[in-house]
Each structure stands twice: as structure tokens, then as C-alpha cells.
Design a protein around this nucleic acid. Structure first.
Lengths: 161, 161
DNA sequence: CTCGATGCAAAATTTTTGCAGTCCC
DNA sequence: GGGACTGCAAAAATTTTGCATCGAG
């Protein structure tokens, strides 16, 4: 588990305010789930999150994790990162100011986030040309990372199912 | 069900050749599944495909559909179109020469395929910059189609779960 | 004939839900 | 104290798999 940052402390307050503003209650379980999500620097699954939240509060159940995930995404504190597996990935939304694309390594199954600022322009173009009101965009590249493999960074046995 | 085209007839031969080349057998069930997939002009799920294949050959089982889908994607006769639902969509790969992106309507859940030729350039750029060997790319735009709704094309109750 | 392919049903996986009891406000 | 929240276990929903049987080559 990563050390808790002071930044995390303030975002935690934001989460509480979000709950209050929605008339929802601030429970220990929801806070444990938030802390677990925000302390993870990587992508994680619902099951990963359950494990980590339980390290903080052993009473957290799977059902509560699944019920908390929509709250965390609605409040933009985490975002869903869907890469076409059978289960969904999530990630704390820490400092993403520009559009993020995903590079998925086909060898080690790792997911890297990269900036793709031109996607903001693309969204506008699509919106204009097709008269659409763009809500979200997804750009994903699946690739073999020969370089990373040579450097020993990419190796089979990463965080995969 | 769409009428069978002469084009479909020749692609069907391609599928048989693919099976032969792999030392796999040409069975009635596999042909029925191919015909059902190729006759569908839209995106379909495994369950849709089972229904349609059974209209051609009532003996087709769900297991066989799931076992045939990887063969059809390997041979590039159909392609998987993953839009982040709990189940997967597929689509016959009829005449896609340029890269196809998906526009997903948030109101009627329809999926539209649009050309995005610049993505080929983008793939090359990513490959060069990050020393990656790009395998596949995905670009998806979720949007409200105000225009289509006004025209009556987009209406709730489309092909959704 | 032989071995790959099939159907069936059970299993596996991920996510959702009903209900009785709990605890936040 | 009341009602939202939780845990548990069962249910849903999609996909995979074991096994006996079938049929393509």
C-alpha cells in the first residue's frame, strides 16, 4: 500500500462533500474503499479494490465495493478504464488534465496511460461534422513492447487475471 | 434475415479454406454460424448469433457458437467490437479498408461505424515514439445524437441488452 | 474407422439484488 | 429513532468446460 499523501487527505474531503451533497451517508466502509482506491497508483479491478479496502476495514464486503464504484466514478474521483477484458478496470483520477489514452502491452498485460491531447480536437471535429454531443472518448492501442521487453521492464506475470 | 449475396458465397469459400488450412473440419454448424454472422448487417452478440444460426440449422448449440467465434475472428471474417458492455459485440468484416471507429449513441444504444483514416497515421506515430509494435487500435466516441433524434432515426428501444 | 466436433449441462466468473440486521445523522 | 447502509448468500448473466456421442474425411 502506498503512503497516504496530504493531497489524498483533501480529495477525501471532496468525497465526503460529494456524499453529503447527494444526501448519502459517510460510512467507514465507503471511506475505506475510497482510501484503497486512491492509494493505488495503478489500474485495479473490483476484486483488487475489495482486497485493499479490507486491509483498511475488514468489514468491507464485495457488495459494498460494487455499490461504491458508481459513486466514485460519478464524482470523477476515479474513472473506469475498459480494455475489453471480461472484467472492468478502474483508476484513481489524480492529475489527468489532458485526454489519456491506454497502451495495453500484449506480452505482460500491463496498461500504460499516455497523453493524447489531440483527442480533444478530434472530439470537437466529430461533434461538428456529425452533429453529436460528445460525452466520452476512448483511444486504446494494443502492442508488443519490444523495447520494454529488452529493458526487462516488460515481463510476463504482471497484474493480469 | 438479409438475402444471401453472391459476395457472401465467395467469402464462405474463404472460410472453408481457412478451416481446411488449419486442419479443422467443415461442419454444418460452423457454416450455419458463418452464414448467420455474414448475413447480419449490424453488430450482434453471441446470443443474437445463436438465434440466427438456429434459424438456419436448429441443431446449433450455444457452446458451438462460442467455440466458432474465435475461428471467425482469427480468420478476419468477423471482428470483435468491444464497447465496454458486459458482453461482447461482433460484426461481419465486409468492406472495411480504412480504420473504423465506433460512435455509440447514449440515447438509443446503437453503434455506428465511421471511417477514421488518420488512425493509421496515429498508430505509426505511437509505434515510432514509444518503440512499440502496434497490433490493434480502438477509437470510440460516446455521444448524444441530437440531430438523429430530431430526424427520428435515434429512438430509445434499439438493440440493447 | 478415427479423431475432431458437437450438445448438454454443470461450472466458472463477474456483477447484481433481496432481505434482515446495523449504524449514521 | 428512522431510514439509509451493510453483509451475506443467492441470483443473474455471460462464457467456458467435461464428457459421452456423433459425424466429417
Amino acid at each position: 500500500m502506498e503512503p497516504k499523501t496530504s493531497d489524498q487527505e483533501s480529495v477525501r474531503e471532496t468525497f465526503k462533500e460529494f456524499l453529503n451533497s447527494k444526501g448519502l451517508r459517510v460510512t467507514n466502509q465507503r471511506l475505506a474503499i475510497f482510501d484503497a482506491a486512491y492509494a493505488d497508483p495503478d489500474h485495479f479491478t473490483a476484486e483488487d479494490l475489495l482486497d485493499r479496502a479490507r486491509e483498511i476495514d475488514t468489514t468491507v464486503s464485495r457488495a459494498t465495493v460494487y455499490r461504491a464504484l458508481p459513486l466514485l466514478t460519478e464524482s470523477s474521483l476515479i474513472r473506469q478504464v475498459d480494455v475489453g477484458r471480461d472484467y472492468k478496470f478502474y483508476m484513481a483520477n489524480k492529475n489527468a488534465t489532458t485526454f489519456q489514452a491506454q497502451v495495453i502491452c500484449l506480452d505482460c498485460d500491463k496498461i500504460f496511460e499516455i497523453d493524447a491531447p489531440f483527442m480533444e480536437w478530434y472530439g470537437k471535429t466529430v461533434a461538428d461534422k456529425l452533429s453529436l454531443e460528445v460525452e466520452t472518448q476512448r483511444l486504446q492501442v494494443s502492442a508488443h513492447c519490444t523495447e520494454l521487453k529488452a529493458a526487462g521492464i516488460c515481463e510476463r506475470g504482471g497484474k493480469k487475471r
